[in-house]
């Protein structure tokens, strides 16, 4: 396949006179992990919202596996195989972990029994197996994030947009999460992730895109990113 998995051109999102996204170009190849970073307010979460279909972009084109999805309904984009998680976890608070993940699994498996089996396998793979009967509301923040990831993975996506899945985790939990992400990528699922914990990202990412005030200011390898004067300026300001 020559076409990239995801190709975003000139993506714009305006809230009144505020340009949250001001012509973002982003290309994600098949496989691997792309990191989307940038200072607070750069537009990372808005970009995720527009790409996944939760928000309607004001302009630009988004092609997923060659199909134009800009402005498509949220659930349709998920059906095509592009699923995001939320920075602020959005659990089905009153459901058990197993039921919540089953909702995701039902996307590709209409029969409840087989969706349940697949959900159980996914939960085990993410180390939540012991908590499958726990009500989502009473999970710890780390487990809620894992549940969010399990629910998204259960839909068998080809592209996963992860919005700060590491935030609020202890260093041990972070290390476990890194291992988890490696296994997901090894299974052939492409990941784009927004993250602030740089020391986590740098060894994990194949490719780094830096957003600042709604524009892409860097696109390249992780080692080049940390030495790029534009990136340093965006994070720390002009000396």
């Amino acid at each position: 396949m020559s076409a990239p998995l995801l190709e975003v051109r000139g993506l714009a999102k305006r809230f009144g006179s505020l340009r949250a996204l001001d012509g973002v170009d982003l290309t994600v190849p098949h496989g691997g992990l792309t990191a989307l970073i940038g200072p607070n307010g750069a537009g990372k979460t808005t970009a995720f919202g527009c790409i996944a279909g939760a928000q309607r972009p004001s302009g630009g084109s988004i092609r997923f596996e060659g199909i134009e999805i800009a402005g498509a309904a949220y659930h349709r984009v998920a059906r095509l195989g592009l699923v995001r998680t939320y920075q602020v976890v959005q659990p089905f608070a009153e459901m058990t972990v197993l039921d919540a993940v089953t909702v995701g699994a039902l996307l590709r498996r209409p029969r409840v029994a087989s969706a349940r089996d697949f959900a159980a396998t996914t939960i085990d793979a993410l180390g939540l197996g012991a908590k499958s009967a726990t009500i989502a509301r009473s999970l710890t923040i780390a487990d809620k994030k894992r549940l969010e990831l399990a629910r998204a993975l259960a839909t068998e996506p080809r592209l996963l947009l992860l919005d700060e899945v590491m935030a609020g985790l202890t260093p041990t939990e972070c290390a476990a999460a890194v291992e988890l992400l490696r296994t997901i990528v090894a299974r052939g699922i492409t990941i784009v992730m927004v993250e602030h914990v740089m020391e986590v990202l740098m060894p994990l990412a194949d490719h780094v895109v830096v957003l600042a005030t709604g524009r892409v200011i860097f696109d390249g390898s992780p080692s080049d990113a940390v030495n790029d004067p534009g990136v340093i300026e965006a994070y720390l300001g002009r000396p």
Binding site: Y74, A78, F92, M95, G104, A152, T155
Partner: peptide
């Protein structure tokens, strides 16, 4: 399952493909 998911969090339901 979908109805319960929608009742609890419609946006999260849509994010995993629920119409």
């Amino acid at each position: 399952f979908y109805l319960r998911a929608i009742r609890l969090n419609q946006e999260a339901a849509a994010s995993v493909g629920v119409d």
